[in-house]
């Protein structure tokens, strides 16, 4: 045991051989674990760390992009609203203008029709007056004829005038 601890008794060499064997076993184990397990697992862990870092970066940039899109869309929305308001206002203006036009035109039409109607009435009245004048003239002529044709007594004359008035009324 003491030999083993102090490595002095080279004659027996129990310690040296066993120690070398343990070291050799460990180094071989180290080699195989390094080859079959350590390299792939550390590579995988590194890859994962890289992937997470990349994902974080891309998430950040995506977020910025999304915020940009939102502000852009808001601006567009406001512009569209303003445009819609102008269109509606324009339409209102046009409509009121057009209604004014229509009303004015209707008023013109009505007044011109009135003027025309008045003129027609006046003409018809003058025509009627002319007719009446002719009638009266004819009547006077025929009364005069009848007076001249017959020498009438007062009664006869009265009867004659009554007959003519009756004739006129009948007309």
């Amino acid at each position: 045991m003491l030999n083993g601890i102090l490595l002095v008794n080279a004659g027996e060499q129990l310690a040296l051989g066993n120690m070398l064997f343990v070291l050799l076993t460990f180094v071989v184990l180290l080699f195989f674990i390094g080859k079959f397990a350590w390299k792939p697992i550390t590579k995988m862990m590194q890859d994962r760390a890289d992937k997470i870092a990349n994902d974080l970066d891309s998430a950040e940039s995506n977020k910025n992009e999304a915020a940009e899109l939102v502000s852009k869309r808001n601006a567009e929305l406001q512009a569209t609203q303003a445009e819609a308001t102008t269109i509606i206002n324009n339409a209102k203006d046009t409509a009121s203008k057009r209604s004014d036009d229509i009303i004015a035109q209707a008023r013109d039409n009505a007044s011109s029709m009135k003027v025309k109607a008045n003129a027609e009435i006046a003409q018809e009245r003058s025509e009627a007056m002319a007719d009446v004048k002719n009638e009266v003239a004819d009547l006077s002529v025929s009364i005069a004829q009848k007076i001249i044709q017959k020498e009438l007594k007062l009664d006869d004359q009265k009867a004659l005038i009554d007959a003519y008035i009756g004739e006129l009324e009948a007309k």
Binding site: G17, F21, T25, L29, I33
Partner: peptide
């Protein structure tokens, strides 16, 4: 050199257990 059987066998078994464990897990 002189080798102790129990050390040789036990060490190799320990190393094999470790290797198989890590190999299976990986």
């Amino acid at each position: 050199l002189t080798f102790d059987w129990s050390i040789v066998i036990s060490t190799v078994i320990a190393a094999l257990i470790v290797f198989l464990l890590v190999f299976v897990l990986s």
